[in-house]
């Protein structure tokens, strides 16, 4: 078991290295660089200045030298310096990460919890009203573009019913009291979390409903019922544990996205998260930031996969024997 984990971690490092190299070359293919973007944005500049800027950013060197330099830096934990933000990339990402994690993790937790419950109750009476509601709701959540949903949510709950703020992660100035500060942030996060959770939730309710229906028809459930177990025990103890494997798979996949998977929601609600940082950096060709965010995303994906595997083994002992 331990050996398998170590193996996975080592493999992870190789993967991350591959991701960096691949991204590096992909970015070289993008038209223009950060100096083009900055000078064009400011409406001018002469070639000498452009050349000096490129030199100061190290962009005048051959690509392979830039790559080797970058890899060397990453090995000692330095993700480089953002040309656009005038700040080290690591600082920049760390300052944007809490917002993103608060948003994505709370949306994920809500979605897993409620999505699974919805699915389970829908599966108990697959032809009932609630089941139909879940199916339609899932379809809606699945098919709605998230930015559209965000806009509607904004209009309804920030303009017509002004219950929640339309932008940002906190009020300015922030409340003095630390408890109020926390409540203020939660207040700002309600709409974006709701929007993202609806999107996620659709997946979980669909999958858990289907999986529960499968499991409920299995022999061992009939056995459990004939033993005289209460329906509650049958559903939650016997059926759900097995039925939730696909849910774990999906949650694992989405856990991998917590780092940068909410670009649209963060943009619609003007949250200072990693998503808008990535978008902005792509528009400005701020390569160190793009590479840094992608590095973070790759690492999260690999870690999330390892965690998912471990949870699998714990939930389904059969998997242990296969590895």
């Amino acid at each position: 078991m331990m050996q398998a984990v170590i193996q996975r971690i080592l493999l992870g490092f190789v993967l991350i290295l591959g991701v960096i190299v691949l991204n590096f070359f992909l970015l070289q293919a993008a038209p223009g660089d950060v100096v083009d973007a900055m000078l064009a944005e400011a409406g001018g500049g002469d070639p000498e200045l452009a050349a000096r800027l490129r030199q100061s950013y190290g962009l005048d060197q051959p690509v392979y030298i830039q790559l080797i330099k970058y890899l060397g830096q990453v090995c000692i934990g330095d993700l480089g310096y953002s040309f656009y933000y005038d700040e080290p990339v690591a600082t920049l990402i760390l300052s944007h990460l809490p917002t993103t994690l608060m948003l994505t993790l709370s949306a994920l937790i809500l979605a897993v919890l409620f999505g699974t419950l919805f699915g389970v109750y829908a599966a108990i009476k697959p032809k009932g009203v609630f089941s139909n509601f879940v199916t339609i709701f899932s379809l809606f959540g699945y098919a709605t573009p998230v930015f559209w949903l965000g806009m509607i949510v904004l209009l309804v709950f920030a303009l017509y019913l002004p219950w929640f703020p339309a932008f940002g992660i906190r009020s300015i100035p922030e409340p003095e009291d630390s408890l109020e500060r926390v409540l203020d942030i939660i207040h700002h996060l309600v709409l974006p979390t709701f929007t993202l959770a609806v999107l996620y939730l659709a997946n979980y309710s669909r999958i858990s409903r289907a999986s529960m229906l499968d499991v409920l028809g299995a022999d061992y459930i009939r056995t459990a019922r004939t033993k005289g177990l209460s329906e509650r025990k049958v559903i939650f103890k016997h059926a759900l544990k097995n039925a939730s494997l696909p849910v774990v798979t999906l949650a694992g996949l989405q856990l991998a996205q917590v780092f940068s998977g909410a670009v649209l929601v963060e943009t619609v609600f003007s949250l200072p998260g990693v998503g808008p940082l990535l978008y902005e950096s792509i528009m400005r060709r701020d390569f160190p930031v793009i590479l840094g965010v992608l590095f973070g995303a790759a690492t999260t994906t690999i870690v999330a996969n390892i965690i998912t595997d471990l949870i699998y083994k714990w939930m389904d002992p059969r998997i242990q024997s296969i590895t």
Partner: peptide, 8 residues
């Protein structure tokens, strides 16, 4: 105040 979205 930085706001990105046009609706907001």
């Amino acid at each position: 105040q930085n706001v990105q979205d046009k609706t907001a």
